[in-house]
Nucleic acid binder design. Structure first.
Length: 200
DNA sequence: CTAAGGATTAACT
DNA sequence: GTTAATCCTTAGT
């Protein structure tokens, strides 16, 4: 299907974009292998409104510098010392918004993804969870700043958009430190998918 | 349920 | 420069 163009990522409403990204496909071509899957779980983060966002209120540091670039770049960072988490930078320059990809449903290169994850069979923990997604796809912190319109990491449409009534909105995971912003229902899951993350 | 793990950052000298 | 607290998690008891 069609690769998502740069202007797609530059929409102003990061919450709407996080919803629209569910049902799109995420691919990587790393180490000579193409792997990918359909996005089934996302979370929106908005630096202008949201304490849970790393770039809240123009907290511009070395790590968050990428937020101030135009949408369409990868923000990859290390969490809990172990896990690379993959985010898509959205909106225009100087508007620090991003969408975290939390889970995908495997579509292509499943053998390679199983090997990277050390699993024998496809099951939810292959790609259910943000650290699992990056490990299965081969994404590391070295991909910080990667262009999502290039040929290493990219997204594609898969026919029609997913209807809004097939999404479950809920509070985001692991952001309790964000005060009342932690209650914002900015996590979106595909209702009938068995590939979403186990986190409640 | 809990421990592990390394980078980032704010708050100090 | 140094230190301590924190973190968008996972695998393994």
């Amino acid at each position: 299907m069609a690769k998502l163009p740069r202007h797609y990522y530059q929409q102003a409403d990061v919450v709407a974009l996080a919803q629209n990204l569910v049902g799109k496909a995420l691919y990587t071509h790393i180490d000579g292998v193409t792997t990918g899957g359909m996005i089934v779980e996302t979370e929106a983060y908005s630096g202008s409104r949201d304490r849970a966002c790393h770039a809240f209120l123009h907290r511009r540091t070395q790590r968050t510098a990428i937020f101030y670039q135009p949408g369409g770049l990868a923000y990859v960072y290390l969490c809990y010392g172990i896990h690379a988490l993959f985010n898509i930078i959205t909106n225009v320059a100087e508007a620090p918004d991003a969408v975290l990809i939390r889970a995908i449903e495997p579509l292509e290169g499943i053998g390679t993804m199983l090997r990277r994850r050390g699993l024998a069979r496809a099951q939810r923990k292959l790609t259910g969870g943000p650290g699992c997604v990056t490990q299965a796809l081969g994404i590391t912190t070295a991909d910080y700043g990667e262009e999502l319109t290039g040929d290493r990491i990219w997204l594609e449409t898969r026919g029609d958009d997913v209807d809004a009534n097939r999404l479950i909105a809920s509070p985001r995971v692991g952001v309790g430190y964000a005060g009342e912003d932690a209650q914002l229902p900015w996590r979106f899951r595909l209702r009938d998918s068995s590939w979403t993350s186990p986190a409640k």
